[in-house]
Design a protein around this nucleic acid. Structure first.
Lengths: 90, 90
DNA sequence: CCCGCCAATACCCATTCGGTATCGGCCACT
DNA sequence: AGTGGCCGATACCGAATGGGTATTGGCGGG
């Protein structure tokens, strides 16, 4: 599991389609599809239901989404804390 | 910043040397050195003091270490929560 | 004074990641 | 009922990233 995969998952969950998320992430649709599948494979459970209209979150996906947002926020916090600390010294 | 870089940083901080951390991570020393430097570059601040005896955490490194452990724990939680949810359905 | 341990650098190869082109399926609209 | 359009999935290829081996430079201890 990589950080990029987590960001990609959140984008797909929020946009509702792989196409829309790809546009937002400035990558193309096929690699994004692959990352979502790789994440599901690694977690051992599907996160989305594929419909002709797009991707709908399954219960497992809802659960992961909440955690994923927490992880991304924690990373931002970590970077901000380091920059704050190093600024305080100088 | 990648998840691997965070794990690598934690290993170096705990082992005290790049060599020791590399052994624990089952990779070799040079790529590990590069990842640590890349992480410092991205954060805009050094995290370790290089000594002839190894790597000593700087204050900014101590701050980041605490956050880094939280991020890794949050990811484990996320994976465990998904597996729990998907198990509950089946 | 020199030997040993450490991180840093140079260079190369394997793997991963992203892009273009294309396919298959389902719904909407005629 | 037929067809056009939008969706995700797959095949294939080139670029970028990541890890490995070999080597260097620097400091401290015997």
């Amino acid at each position: 599991m990589s950080l990029a995969q987590i960001e990609y998952f959140v984008a797909v969950a929020e946009e509702g389609t792989v196409h829309g998320a790809a546009r937002r992430l400035h990558i193309s649709q096929p690699p994004l599809t692959r990352h979502v599948r790789a994440l599901e494979d690694e977690l051992g459970a599907p996160l989305f239901e594929r419909t002709p209209r797009g991707m709908r979150l399954l219960p497992a996906g809802e659960v992961f989404l909440a955690h994923a947002r927490g992880v991304l926020a924690a990373i931002d916090d970590a970077a901000a804390a380091v920059r704050r600390q190093s600024a305080a010294v100088s």
